[in-house]
Design a protein around this nucleic acid. Structure first.
Length: 874
RNA sequence: GCGGGCGUGGUGAAACUGGUAAACACAAAGGACUUAAAAUCCUUCGCCGUCAUAGGCUUGCGGGUUCAAGUCCCGCCGCCCGCACCA
């Protein structure tokens, strides 16, 4: 530090003189981390005589920098891990890297270099940033999904899945960038154009690998009911995503359709509205549309336009509803004199149902808009109970459980619920020979092929004579090539490097030994993250898992991560665990791999903005701003309310800086203290400073008591402090158990205030502070060790058993009862905790405020809720 | 567009199962200590109203149920997450 720039904390230290010391995390924290390492405190050991506890936080993508979201996630996991260890569990708390993915390839394209070097370099950087946090992680189990040891085992499992019939190939549509000669992810398609090339994206059909997750739809749905320790919202989202529905599938007879299309299969979950049908619609990807496209330029143009929307469901649904009349009609199954026009419509998904529907505009908002636009009639099928038929200004869509009156019904009662009507309609249609009832799921099979380099190669070979042949397990891993013609692969050339590599894809057929070609597609990175939790139980095993280790450690007792993974990652993992059970890689009990799930909120920060000469926004890092102005120029900044920390808005705080300024314990304490874990937390500089001040106060309290000997006495002050300590034990414990770390921390603040103001003897206060060290240890482990050792605690606090609250010390003999008069609080009385109701009533009626209001009359009602409240109704 | 969630003082929040709304903090204001500042400690602090009391109002908005509603029910508004090739 250059002279003249010493900060005020250092100054404080100097002015305090040689005997005074201070809370100095920079010296405390590394010291205790070394002590934990030296004793291997966090090594997870299979201890058959102890219950195990497996805590897992969603592993990070190695972007190169840790951010506050990581700190929050891992701090929470660490609280749970350390708390469970203190309760006597044998804890597994591992860490690894979700290391395959697009950013590494993008970096190689943008800046040169190789994805492998970029990724491993980032991992080293991020590990170095994480270690100072003092997390209780068993680093000996660390791995990255891009390690050949990991993805080789993934390939072995893929082969087992293939053999078990869990994987198959079919055609699927992708976004193709004709300039960059590459497949684009949905996020790389912006307004229908490639993000780099800026040219319109094409759809291409490729043969791809799929996992048969839809075979498990029913089971994945039903098993949700057993996931009691998952957030209800996540279970609901998964339920809706799986989307089980009961409906009618039947075929319309067509008129004027090309040969081979004399029938049109449709599926509807509302067959009860069949008499309200005024048109039929098919997906632009429907075989009929594809056939027409080849012969009719108008259709070809319309379909081509539909395909420019991009492939995401969101893009399709948000697009304006449009259709093209094909001129073909279908005959109504109940009345051949009624003909419905067949449209090609951009909002019909080929992936759901049969890719064709009948439209009932009166009872479906999309159909209503469509019918209005194209001038189709909108006859209602049912009306609200007691209402008459009237012209509709929007679709009438009451809940299926509500009773309505059918005016164009054909099965069941005149007045019935939608549910009953659907059942009756299916039964009626089946009896008439018009189709049959079908149960369908929205959930589609999981396409895992990616036309990219930086992923796990799919271990199959294409042979001209044998076809698609699985690679032999002894040849695994099928490793990614690093070089190309003796030089690291050049990513600046468009296209898939595996495909254009001069030698990599050429191999011998595992079956006939002849010349063959490797599959050049790699796996979706969701595959990597669908079983890493299992790999952590035996990370160096030469098979995907080790039976005995998996048997002991599975399942994950507490999984922690962001809600953004509520559907895909968690559903894929649930499927994968089942597939691993089926192929013998996991025990039966592990088919629901995550016993408890917690979804934490984001870390947000204010945004500081100025505008440049052209009025465009310019964002500034928090450290460049002070008191509403830029520190260098003094220009005032506009403060935009907090949003998720993001590099583009520059509202990021680097954990490394915070640890440097205040220490890891301060960062951990603050990130846990203010907001409930499931909600967003706003990072503020003032809050971080306040956290640091509080920890300093705790340190000073301990410092003053250093070397205290003797035992606490029996006087009032010592007893009162003891009671406060037990109340704190109770509340901190409840908070941690209930994932409300903010409440645990509030209780620790309260205990600190009590100790500071207490007149108790030094031994009593030292005892209180030792308990405080134990209670703080999950959140601020370094300071806890320091306080513990300053006050004569035995061994490491990380190894001390969790304190127990004495129930006798938690109750007060008298309670204060608020008195309400007509529901408004007007007075209060103190009564014995176990006072009889009659006695309380007597005291209430004798209360001044009550007597004043009653003025001699008797109350209309007197409600006494024992130990809680009294309400006098007049 | 569809599915899901959230909303309480100037700010982050607490409130057990329908029972004292605002615990614990931040910010702010005042004070003590100090030559001074920093640090530390003490006090005040939902809003309106009052010299002070008394009182009235208050949990996004509008209704309802109840002796009693932040909590339960109905209808809206705003923000956030997911939508299958971002991780």
């Amino acid at each position: 530090m250059p002279p003249g720039q010493c900060n005020h904390r250092a100054l404080t230290f100097l002015t305090r003189g040689p005997h005074m010391s201070r809370y100095d995390p920079a010296s405390i924290e590394p010291r205790w981390q070394e002590a934990w390492d030296a004793q291997a405190v966090f090594r997870a050991d299979r201890a058959e005589d102890r219950p195990k506890y497996y805590v897992l936080e969603m592993f990070p993508y190695p972007s190169g920098r840790i951010h506050m979201g990581h700190v929050r996630n891992y701090a929470m996991g660490d609280v749970v891990a350390r708390y469970k260890a203190a309760q006597g569990f044998s804890v597994l708390h591992p860490m690894g890297w979700d290391a395959f993915g697009m950013p590494a390839e993008n970096a190689a394209m943008d800046q040169g270099g190789h994805p492998r070097d970029w990724t491993y370099g980032n991992i080293d950087d991020m590990r170095a940033q994480m270690k100072p946090l003092g997390l209780s992680i068993d680093w000996s189990r660390e791995f990255a999904t891009c390690d050949p040891e990991y993805y080789g085992q993934q390939q072995a499992m893929f082969l087992d899945f293939l053999e078990a019939g869990l994987v198959y190939r079919k055609n699927a549509v992708v976004n193709w960038d004709p300039v960059d000669m590459t497949v684009l992810a949905n996020e790389q398609v912006i307004d229908g154009k490639g993000w780099r090339s800026g040219v319109e994206v094409e759809r291409r059909e490729l043969t791809q690998w799929f996992f048969r997750i839809s075979d498990y739809a029913e089971e994945l749905l039903e098993a949700l009911d057993g996931l009691h320790d998952w957030p209800e919202k996540v279970r609901l989202m998964q339920r809706n995503w799986i989307g089980k529905s009961r409906g009618l599938q039947f075929a319309f007879t067509t008129s004027g359709a090309p040969e081979g299309f004399d029938r049109l299969e449709v599926y509807s979950t509302r067959p009860d509205t069949l008499l309200g049908a005024t048109f039929a619609a098919i997906s632009p990807d429907h075989p009929l549309a594809r056939h027409l496209e080849r012969h009719d330029p108008a259709v070809a143009e319309f379909v081509a336009e539909c395909r420019r929307t991009g492939t995401s469901e969101e893009a399709l649904e948000k697009a304006e509803k449009r259709g093209l009349d094909t001129g073909i009609t279908v005959l109504h199954p109940f009345d051949n004199s009624v003909e419905l026009p067949v449209y090609i419509a951009n909002f019909i998904l080929m992936d759901y149902g049969t890719g064709a529907i009948f439209g009932c505009p009166a009872h479906d908002q999309r159909d209503f808009e469509f019918a209005t636009k194209y001038g189709l009639p909108i006859p209602p099928v049912f009306v609200a109970e007691g209402a008459d038929e009237a012209e509709l200004s929007e679709a009438y869509v009451p809940p299926k459980t509500e009773k309505v009156r059918y005016i164009r019904g054909f099965a069941g009662q005149e007045v019935q619920t939608g549910e009953a009507a659907v059942d009756a309609a299916i039964e009626f249609c089946e009896a008439q020979g018009v189709g049959h009832g079908v149960t369908r799921f929205r959930l589609r099979d999981w396409g895992l092929s990616r036309q990219r380099y930086w992923g796990c190669p799919i271990p199959v070979v294409h042979c001209a004579t044998c076809g698609v042949v699985p690679e032999k397990k002894k040849n695994l891993p099928v490793a990614l090539p690093y070089d190309e013609d003796g030089k690291p692969i050049d990513f600046s050339i468009p296209g898939n490097p595996l495909d254009r590599h001069p030698s990599w894809k050429h191999c011998a057929c595992p079956k006939c030994g002849g010349e063959a070609r490797r599959e050049t597609d790699t796996m979706d990175t969701f595959v990597d993250s669908s079983w890493y939790y299992a790999r952590f139980t035996a990370p160096r095993a030469t098979t995907p898992t080790d039976r005995a280790e998996a048997e002991y450690w599975m399942n994950v007792d507490q999984y922690i991560g962001g809600v953004e993974h509520a559907i895909l990652h968690l559903l894929y993992s649930r499927f994968f665990a089942r597939a691993m059970v089926k192929t013998g890689h996991l025990p039966e009990k592990a088919k629901e791999p995550f016993s408890a799930l917690f979804t934490q909120g984001m870390v947000t920060h204010e945004i500081y903005m100025t505008r440049d000469a052209k009025g465009r926004p310019v964002y500034h890092l928090p450290e460049a701003v002070g008191e509403g102005r830029l520190k260098d120029s003094g220009e005032a900044v506009t403060v935009i309310p907090s949003q998720k920390m993001s590099k583009s808005k520059k509202n990021v705080v680097d954990p490394v800086n915070i640890i440097g300024d205040f220490g890891a314990d301060t960062a951990r304490w603050f990130i846990l203290s203010d907001s409930p874990p499931e909600r967003d937390v706003e990072w503020t500089a003032a809050g971080a400073e306040a956290a640091h001040k509080h920890l300093s106060r705790v340190w000073r309290l301990a410092d003053e008591l250093r070397g205290t000997t003797g035992t606490p006495g029996n006087d009032d002050a010592d007893l009162a402090l003891e009671k406060a300590v037990h109340r704190a034990i109770e509340e901190v414990t409840k908070g941690v158990d209930g994932f409300a770390f903010n409440k645990s921390i509030a209780a620790l603040y309260a205990l600190t205030n009590t100790v500071m103001k207490s007149d108790a003897s030094a031994p009593a206060r030292a005892r209180a502070m030792r308990v405080m060290a134990q209670l703080m240890a999950p959140m601020v482990p370094h300071l806890a060790e320091e306080v513990w050792s300053m006050l004569g605690g035995e061994g490491l606090v990380a190894r001390a058993p969790w304190p127990k609250a004495d129930p006798a010390l938690l109750v007060d003999d008298t309670v204060t009862l608020p008195i309400q008069i007509n529901g408004k609080r007007r007075s209060e009385i103190a009564v014995a905790r176990d006072a009889a109701k009659e006695e309380v009533e007597k005291l209430v009626l004798a209360d001044d405020a009550v007597r004043r209001v009653l003025d001699g009359r008797a109350p209309r009602k007197l409600i006494v809720v024992p130990g809680r409240i009294v309400n006098v109704v007049i």
